[in-house]
Simulated assay, not measured.
Amino acid sequence: MPDQRDPNAAPDRPAAPNGPDTGPYDALLLLSFGGPEGPDDVVPFLENVTRGRGIPRERLKEVGKHYFLFGGVSPINEQNRELLAALRKEFADQGVDLPVYWGNRNWAPYLTDALREIADAGHRRVLVLATSAYASYSGCRQYRENLAASLAVLAEEGRPALRVDKLRHYFNHPGFVEPMVDNTLAALAALPADVRDRARLAFTTHSIPTAAADTSGPVAAHGDGGAYVAQHLETARLVADRVRQATGTDRDWQLVYQSRSGAPHIPWLEPDICDHLESEHADGAPAVVMVPIGFVSDHMEVKYDLDTEAAAKAAELGLPVSRAATVGADPRFAAAVRELVLERAATERGLAPVRCALGRLGPSHDVCPAGCCPAADRGRPSRPAAAGTD
């Protein structure tokens, strides 16, 4: 299997954080996907996720079996509570005077309720941290559409207008990459000693339709589109390089996908993690570490698709595997969010702040350009979106 590291990559560029002034912003919103917190929540949650697609309730009950295996509880909300606490602690410890709120796309606490609370508290300029590190329709544009729809509700209610700005993509920020490196090293250490030094790495992320991947972006080094795959490959390279430096072993690695959904005739990104494990086993791989770089927290796609389904496939093959933890509420990630907040605030004040980024792609754009990450996989024009130029 070829090593996908780029030998021509530019040196990594670590940098120092900016000062503690958050003006003109007066609130931060943690914006996430949401998940059920009990058996009775599962089908209503899935109805929220699939609203407008005409999926029968009986089909949703079938899909919900994954959640019922875990008592109907997704871990994402609890992990968001932990991240919320970590952000508040980081801000308090570093003298950053910025209240942090939390809202979800598909389950309580809902986004509209969170924005309503922010407005009623007197805040008017809001930064938004989405729990997705990469460019894509579902990971960026759809959150911006949700923000626009919720702001429209508040306007209809006669509440004061809010301006929301979304923090840039953080896939290559040191505070995201470094925890993933340590988590990968811990997963390697969990393997049997006789295969540990020869284990391969499978970097996993959510599969999306190839049409959506092709129109994600832009990335300066790759022109318009293709950002979803390019950004994941860069994160994987950064993690793999640091694991090599830490262990002295140059490992084969590959970016693979998981959690495909939707009509079977529509092309999605491949290979699937389970198919990849079969290929690795056939190729003589002694062990594989699954590294979920595409996910900030251990939500259901991680707990079921990797810890349950992929682990079962590996056991069937007799292939030793382990799974690296996600970033979650790691203090380094909380510190990265603080840096991103201060960076964007300084930019809004007309300054030229330090913009931390590792690798060859550099820091992402602050403002999404018109037409960025359209809903190409949905067969419809994109809806109005906040925190961008359209």
Rank of each mutant, 00 (worst) to 15 (best):
A149I: 03
D298Q: 10
P267K: 09
A285M: 08
P331K: 07
V42L: 09
R251F: 09
F295M: 13
R163D: 14
S136W: 07
R81S: 12
A352M: 09
T210Y: 00
G362D: 06
A15V: 10
R116V: 03
D330Y: 06
S32K: 03
R242W: 13
P292R: 05
Y143E: 09
A114I: 12
M290I: 14
V243M: 04
K313W: 00
A15R: 14
P56W: 08
N48G: 05
R332P: 07
G318E: 11
P192D: 02
T22C: 04
P218Q: 04
T131S: 15
E280W: 09
D307T: 11
L28A: 01
G371L: 07
L154T: 09
S207Q: 05
G23I: 00
R260G: 09
E280P: 00
R251E: 03
V367Y: 05
H365F: 14
L340A: 13
A315T: 00
R380A: 01
H276F: 14
G34L: 11
E156R: 14
Q142G: 03
G217D: 04
R237V: 06
V321H: 05
V219K: 02
V289R: 04
V256D: 07
W102D: 10
A334G: 14
S150N: 07
E156Y: 04
D214W: 03
A161W: 07
E280V: 05
P179L: 13
D3S: 15
A85P: 03
V337E: 13
R51Y: 01
S322F: 08
S132A: 15
D21P: 05
L46K: 08
G223H: 02
L162K: 06
R332S: 06
V256R: 12
S216P: 01
R125W: 08
A119N: 05
T50H: 10
G359K: 09
A263V: 13
A375V: 04
R242P: 12
D305V: 06
A334L: 10
E62K: 12
E156N: 13
T326L: 06
D377M: 13
E316K: 01
Y228C: 06
P39A: 02
N146F: 15
N104C: 14
A314N: 01
V321Y: 02
I293P: 13
M300V: 01
E178G: 06
P56D: 03
G54K: 11
C356Y: 02
F176K: 09
Q245N: 10
T308V: 15
A376I: 05
G139L: 02
L191Q: 01
V177Q: 06
V153W: 00
R105V: 12
L317M: 10
A263Q: 15
A315I: 01
V327N: 10
Y25C: 09
P56Y: 06
A315E: 04
A352Q: 15
A155D: 13
V96L: 00
D366N: 14
V229R: 12
A376W: 01
D298H: 09
V43S: 01
D93G: 00
L69F: 10
G175P: 11
V73R: 14
